[in-house]
Design a protein around this nucleic acid. Structure first.
Lengths: 355, 355
DNA sequence: CTGTTAGCGCATTCAC
DNA sequence: GTGAATGCGCTAACAG
């Protein structure tokens, strides 16, 4: 005997059950009511005996849909991505999809390759946490192409569903917290942001929040009545030399603030930036750095608690879940205009802003 | 015009190029030398014009292989998994496979479901970082079933290729470091380890390392001539109550060691345990906890540097890469006996063992 | 060099 | 209730 050399097919099952393929197919598709109890149990037995598993590829080929969703992630090393992924998975299970997870690993041409590959596997839709400019790579979907929903960031010329953080509100929350804690020299640190909408939005929101607060304090003579300074620094994490240079400038800024007697706080636009800054501050001020410099960040990685960093936590699971829901509606044929879901962030206060 | 409502098929291209499907197929499969320059350029043009992409599902159905590999991960929240994943991806690209990433999220029946699903999609092989007991779920492959290679841990009754850390050597390295630093009360902390081979091996290696060291010091009268104590504590991270209880016992142990004047060091079996311990130590001793208690861990997550924890780093990328290589050989038909690749760990000394 | 033919495993008319 | 026939998109013999 031994194990069968080849996996059983529907024909094998039909033969084993002494019937035609049609009945097997009906059984598989839950049209149980149309089968005589006898046939039905014979089929069950045959399937069991042959350890039969319907071939999804063949099914997909026939019916034209394979229940595959593409999930294209810019960087799985970023905990944010992993959490979004979990939300996506949960929704996929609930809706009967199988997520095809693709990891661009910060390589822009990996992203392009994967997008093509997904197309090739005829996924029914894609969820994209874009890295660079899939420009027209995604275009076709708006115009009858494959449905897509964007996560965290928009893609330039593309009019698609979008789900992510309410950046304006999140940044406002953070700035407000810093001002309340008496910081009056705020430094926003962000990766190169021209091409990433979420970074752009956060930076813009940062500027606006400061202006707003300054205006308010001017008329109301708030406790922090003195001027609040604000600056933006760019940290290109993929370029060591550039990072060193930027950190040197930052150091100068911090020193200057100390000289002026100002209270300086660093605002990291996301977790990777926060980690880099924390490492730098630790190297500079030692293990007790939280007492010398303030740091707040968007994103709440697992080590934030250990490092004692105040953060704005994103509802990452929900973001992933909603993305799939949006996509599913699109796949089911909804022809609405592009929607956007912006979830609120949550302030988690820790030692780094209690100096 | 507008975008074509349906993706172009090989027949469309053939018609557009004024030829038969065979030639198109030949073109797609790189049999270019067999095509007249004229036909060839007509085909190229047609493909371009129709934005044609061959349907992988159909190809797979026909040739019987779809170049899909299953990657079943127990827990993507564990940085170890993400790094292995990156190695797997790299190898897949090099060898022309597409990894189907499945995340069991610590749910044992998710694992089972995914294994079935992978079977259903006719993946050519699977790489499994097992969670529970896929028992016979994987059995079939040894006996003509789908090829599999195990990562980090074995599966009980299963005789398959295996790749992971050289646990014995890694643990020895860590223990040796601790002894050299003068610690004489070593506490190994690990998640429930009966069913996870790597944890079992590490725990066993811990006991053996201590015994070996004790023996050596006995005959050679090493500097640490006094007895070295060793104990194992279990931390079930998925059960809060149990964790609290275990930590209380640990605290007692530490207090007792202090009373005796012994130098106590904690040895975390992996990153999740290390994080939990670090959080506890921080809560107990404050931000400077590294000076009150020693901690070493297997795994080297990105936050280890920030937290200043000494670790044994695994060559995770290589592990993932090798897993795919093993699998590929199997898929190509190699019928060798089960192999095992055990990679060495690397000691990264940081503040937590320099007390 | 090129086209015709016959399936891969399955779902779906359409008859019986 | 049930089964035979047709074709999804593609590749692999076979002829020419």
């Amino acid at each position: 005997m031994g194990a069968p050399p080849r996996r059983a097919t529907i024909s094998d099952v039909a033969r084993e059950a002494g019937t035609g393929k049609t009945s097997i197919s009906r059984y598989l598709n839950g049209e149980l009511s149309v089968l005589s109890p006898d046939l039905r149990s014979r089929i069950e037995a045959a399937i069991e005996r042959l350890d039969y598993r319907p071939n999804q590829m063949a099914r997909g080929l026939k019916r034209g849909r394979n229940r595959l969703l593409g999930l294209l992630l810019a960087d799985l090393a970023n905990p944010y991505s992993v959490e979004v992924l979990q939300g996506v998975e949960a929704a996929c299970h609930a809706l009967g999809y199988m997520p095809l997870i693709c990891h661009a690993a910060n390589e822009i041409d990996m992203e392009r390759r994967y997008l093509q590959l997904l197309t090739t596997y005829r996924v029914e839709g894609v969820i994209v946490n874009a890295l660079g400019v899939p420009e027209s790579m995604l275009k076709p979907m708006g115009s009858g192409g494959i449905p897509a929903v964007l996560v965290d960031r928009t893609v330039d010329g593309l009019d698609a569903d979008m789900v992510g953080l309410d950046n304006a509100a999140a940044v406002r929350l953070a700035v407000q917290h810093l001002l309340e804690r008496g910081y009056d020299d705020l430094v926003f640190v962000v990766q190169p942001f021209e091409h990433v909408s979420s970074r752009r939005e956060r930076e813009a929101a940062f500027r606006r929040s400061i202006d707003g607060a300054a205006g308010a304090s001017a008329q109301q003579a708030t406790k922090g009545a003195q001027e609040v300074r604000a600056a933006t620094h760019v940290l290109d994490l993929h370029d060591d030399a550039s990072v060193d240079a930027a950190l040197a400038v930052l150091d100068a800024h911090i020193a200057d603030a100390a000289r002026r007697g100002a209270r300086c706080a660093l605002f990291a636009a996301n977790a990777p930036v926060a980690l880099r800054l924390a490492l730098h501050l630790k190297a500079k001020f030692g293990a007790q750095w939280q007492q010398q410099a303030a740091l707040i960040a968007i994103d709440d990685p697992e080590w934030a608690e250990l490092a004692g960093i105040t953060t704005i936590r994103q509802p990452t699971r929900e973001i992933g879940y909603r993305a799939v829901e949006f996509l599913n509606e699109r796949i089911e044929g909804a022809a609405l205009a592009a929607r956007a879901a912006a979830f609120p962030g949550e302030l988690v206060v820790r030692a780094s802003t209690l100096g």
